[in-house]
């Protein structure tokens, strides 16, 4: 319960800072920026609070697609205004990194399940405490 409140406060603080930063950007407004900000904050909140490990991995994926949506929308905006900003190679690198991270994380989750018999983070912590 305490952890949920603290996580919600941290996410709200990060969201407020990012909204102020978005409002100060001269070229960029509109729904896409705020939708990507919402997706980022939602994924971050799930990664912090949900105790199911597979839900944490899904939250990571939602978070990074939100960030990439922001990058691509920024490049689209600036390209229609004559600037040459092409974030495609950056997005490729990020996608490959996130897919490999997901694969390694899921392999770790399967090993944890074989050892502890559960994929719930709280329960794994409790069982570790009982062992020692």
């Amino acid at each position: 319960m305490m952890r949920k409140v603290v996580s919600l406060l941290a996410v709200a603080l990060i969201g407020a800072v990012l909204i102020v930063a978005l409002a100060k950007m001269p070229e960029f407004g509109g729904g896409t920026a705020f939708a990507s900000l919402f997706l980022f904050l939602l994924g971050l909140y799930v990664m912090l609070t949900d105790s199911n490990l597979i839900k944490k991995v899904i939250g990571l994926n939602i978070m990074d697609t939100g960030i990439f949506l922001f990058f691509i929308a920024l490049g689209y905006r600036s390209s229609t205004r004559g600037a040459a900003y092409m974030p495609s190679p950056l997005i490729f690198g990020g996608l490959a990194a996130v897919v490999s991270f997901t694969a390694i994380g899921l392999a770790m989750i399967v090993r944890l399940y074989k050892y502890y018999g559960t994929i719930d983070a709280e329960e794994i912590m409790r069982k570790r405490g009982e062992d020692e």
Binding site: T32, T65, I72, G75, L95, A96
Partner: peptide, 17 residues
């Protein structure tokens, strides 16, 4: 992403994601 003018990342996301 395809609508926003980034076709190659869009295809990569359709494969990966």
């Amino acid at each position: 992403w395809q609508l926003q003018g980034a076709p190659y990342p869009a295809v990569a996301l359709a494969i990966f994601g």
